[in-house]
């Protein structure tokens, strides 16, 4: 096993410029001895157009990291910047997909998707057309006037993804968006997400605790370990795109998954 942390080779999708840059970041919930150190000494960067996956066990601070990047939580120490500017509060060029779909039951599918446009006062007609195009892209055409309660969990999650894309943010932060889905739907969604990303070419930071999902989606994987949340390993996934589900059966894929597991569980022993 390679112990050194390697910088990713600039791939065809990424430029030299860092879109996300995190240096020596720590976050403590609460104060003093009773405080909980959720993130400790996290450093990484994400290049323009790169698909980064953060994988780690439950409670290791993945959502906390995402909230810092989304400007929802101020860090305790260290620096976090987007496009070279330190993060202070929320920004309009970010799309966030939360762990649950977080839809408003009083808004229709189209209304939910249009929420960022309503909040940010964007051109209604143009945004509406975009919303319909995006709903089409994720296979929700004809559902725009339905209400969230009429949708399955997977469809709701897709609405949440479209909402994050509607204002065409350069950066997409996704927190276990498929965590609540069954394995089959989840794999389909992974393929769909890859397609959307390849079409729209955004910088994505994707959080998961599934090793297979991480390797399947990532240009680069960051493995976090818990208590406190630290980066255990970081490596590039060099599998050709677009990846098909069959790639999961290849030896190369298996080797990457093994590497994630080893980083998650440095003591040895299998993680089943």
């Amino acid at each position: 096993m390679d112990a050194t942390v390697e910088r990713p080779p600039p791939t065809a999708y990424s430029s030299v410029k860092d879109v996300i840059s995190v240096r020596r970041l720590s976050l403590k919930y609460g104060r003093g001895a009773a405080g909980l150190l959720a993130l400790s000494d996290i450093s990484f960067s994400v290049a323009d157009g790169e698909f980064i996956v953060v994988v780690g066990p439950s409670g290791c601070g993945k959502s906390t990291l995402l909230k810092v990047l989304a400007g929802l939580l101020p860090q305790t120490e260290g620096e976090a910047s987007l496009n070279g500017t330190p993060i202070k509060g929320s920004r309009r060029d970010i799309g966030v997909v939360f762990q649950s779909p977080v839809l408003f039951p009083w808004r229709s599918v189209l209304g939910n998707v249009m929420l960022p446009a309503d909040v940010q006062g964007l051109d209604q007609a143009r945004m509406q057309q975009r919303a319909l195009d995006l709903l089409n892209l994720v296979g929700l055409q004809g559902f725009e006037d339905r209400y969230p309660r009429e949708l399955s969990g997977g469809m709701q999650q897709r609405v949440g993804i479209v909402r994050a894309l509607i204002h065409d943010p350069a950066i997409l932060l996704m927190d276990e968006p498929f965590g609540a889905l069954d394995a089959m739907t989840r794999e389909t969604m992974n393929v769909e997400l890859q397609r959307i990303w390849m079409e729209r070419r955004k910088t994505v930071l994707f959080i998961t605790h599934s090793t297979a999902e991480a390797v399947f989606l990532a240009d680069r994987v960051i493995v976090m370990t818990s208590r406190p949340g630290r980066i255990g390993d970081e490596f590039a996934v060099d599998l050709p795109r677009p990846r098909k589900l069959a790639v999961m059966n290849t030896e190369a894929f298996g080797a990457y998954v093994k590497r994630v597991r080893a980083a998650l569980n440095p003591g040895g022993g299998g993680l089943d």
Partner: peptide, 29 residues
Amino acid sequence: ADEDRINLMRSLSASRWQIFRMLQLPNAM
């Protein structure tokens, strides 16, 4: 109003008035 929903509104840079009008009020109905 659910913490996640408030975070969603905040992540969109919603003003306090927008959070009230678009989230808290309908949620309270």
